[in-house]
Amino acid sequence: MPILDGALKVGLDHYLYLSAVLFVLGMIGVMMRRNVVVILMCIELMLNAVNISFVAFSRYAENVNGQVMVFFVMTIAAAEAAVGLALAVTVFKKFREVNIRFFEHLKG
């Protein structure tokens, strides 16, 4: 069945669908979960989704910029995770619990 073949033939759009789904999953996670660490994980998930689309575009557009960008996104994500968790730990030390609500105390 040509349509099925067409649809099943993995092209750039398949990767983009995947990255879109992962991204939205991460977004829901960030909004839903109350545990800071889980939120950070969901952010990592979102960043990974972006990485997939970057690599997919660089692969289909035959240039290497996409991959360099992924490189940088990774470092930023790692740095962000590090600082985020450091903050989470400080909050944990104070409140014995890591709930996103406690960041409200930072409210001015």
Binding site: F71, M74, T75, A79, A81, A82, L85, A86, V89
Partner: peptide, 20 residues
């Protein structure tokens, strides 16, 4: 103790620098 996660953080940062 705090030390463990501190090592993990520093590991990430220096690991990235090595990857570069």
């Amino acid at each position: 103790s705090v030390k463990f996660y501190l090592t993990a953080i520093l590991f990430i940062l220096f690991d990235i620098e090595i990857i570069f």
